[in-house]
């Protein structure tokens, strides 16, 4: 295919392949498989994101301002990088940066950088604090929750559902609390870490399933790959998982895409309880860290995202191959300290 050989420059974030990994390296691996000549520009926040130092995967990395900085600074920095690298497409891979990237998307288009992102409204609708309301509106099961602004609100949660309950930070982190003490401790920790509100959610016992999807912005999920978690780290991240397929899961993902008209990638974190009921626990507005498994299942979602961005029509995808497993592993990559110095001082490597 022609488009496989043309040189494409894609910039992306999420190079933090750490114990709580970002999806960046998975996305790169998927893209390199489809576009062997692709040029990958890493965008990093921390100087120790491993992807920065993996030169076989990332051609060049630039530090970019934190999502907390003014959005204008991000745009300026991207323009600076664009001048040197001539970026075709940007794929943001962090929840917390997405708002800013959506905001500057029109300006990026103006300078020739394409994106394929949801709208601010779509982003807001699936926010942890709004998810229950969203589920109610669209007939999707979401565990009951209490949006907590003070530790007093834990009592409201106790009245509404019983222990254990899940205490979640505004952006990241979740802890299961079995006692009021634990709930309170988690509340204080998470509010200090991520601000308000803290979400206290009904605990659902069951099987954890994650669904990686790509939707066209017109109400249709183009690719849906389901993964059953086989091993979970202390932080609740999948360390190993296997592709599965089931009609009710696919239907759930389609229903979400229809209800939101979602544009781009998203991940549904789903729980299947003892009564075979599916609950949406969380919706991540980006690719999951295990995204390379979609390639193994025969649906290269990052490559499909590129084609959607380029407005290339996609042939219908075959059903995902089930029984493909991923087992994540850690690797000590060796570099000289001068690379770290170089990046820290000049913001480029």
């Amino acid at each position: 295919m022609d488009d496989n050989t043309e040189i494409l420059t894609v910039a992306l974030t999420g190079l933090n392949a750490t114990d709580n990994p970002g999806p960046g390296l998975g996305v790169i691996r998927a893209l390199r498989e489809e576009y062997p000549k692709i040029r990958i520009i890493g965008l990093s926040y921390d100087s120790l994101e491993p992807g920065i130092y993996l030169h076989n995967w990332v051609d060049k990395t630039y530090q970019i301002p934190y999502p907390t900085a003014e959005v204008g600074l991000l745009l300026d920095r991207i323009k600076y990088i664009h001048d040197k690298e001539n970026i075709n497409i940007i794929i943001p891979n962090f929840d917390s940066e997405l708002y800013n990237f959506i905001k500057i998307a029109p300006e990026l288009t103006g300078i020739g950088i394409q994106t394929f992102l949801p709208t601010h409204q779509q982003l807001e609708a699936r926010d942890k604090a709004n998810l229950y309301k969203f589920g109610e509106m669209h007939g999707l099961n979401v565990p009951t929750d209490i949006i907590a602004y003070s530790a007093e609100d834990i009592k409201k949660a106790e009245e509404k559902f019983s222990y254990p309950m899940v205490v979640k930070g505004k952006y990241y982190d979740a802890y299961v609390a079995h006692t009021p003490d634990q709930a309170q401790k988690s509340f204080y920790y998470l509010s200090a870490q991520w601000g308000f509100p803290v979400i206290i959610q009904q605990f659902i016992k069951g099987t954890e399933i994650n669904i990686s999807c790509l939707a066209d912005g017109g109400g249709k999920a183009i690719s849906i790959v389901c993964m059953r978690k086989l091993y979970i780290t202390e932080k609740g991240k999948a360390w190993a998982g296997v592709t599965i397929d089931s009609e009710d899961l696919t239907e759930l993902a389609q229903k979400f895409a229809r209800a939101t008209n979602w544009r781009g990638s998203f991940e549904l974190e789903v729980m299947r309880d003892a009564n075979e009921q599916l609950f949406i626990m969380e919706v991540n507005p980006r690719f999951p860290a295990w995204i390379y498994l979609t390639v193994a299942a025969g649906q290269n979602q990052p490559a499909m995202l590129i084609k959607l961005t380029q407005k290339i029509s996609l042939p219908p995808v075959p059903a995902p191959t089930t029984g493909k497993m991923f087992v994540r592993y850690a690797w000590d990559h060796i570099v000289d300290v001068s690379e770290f110095q170089q990046l820290t001082a000049f913001g480029e490597l």
Partner: peptide
């Protein structure tokens, strides 16, 4: 480039 590495502590400075 003005970088300094302290081998005794592992710290880098610019």
């Amino acid at each position: 480039n003005g970088f300094i590495f302290n081998p005794a502590t592992g710290d880098s400075y610019s």
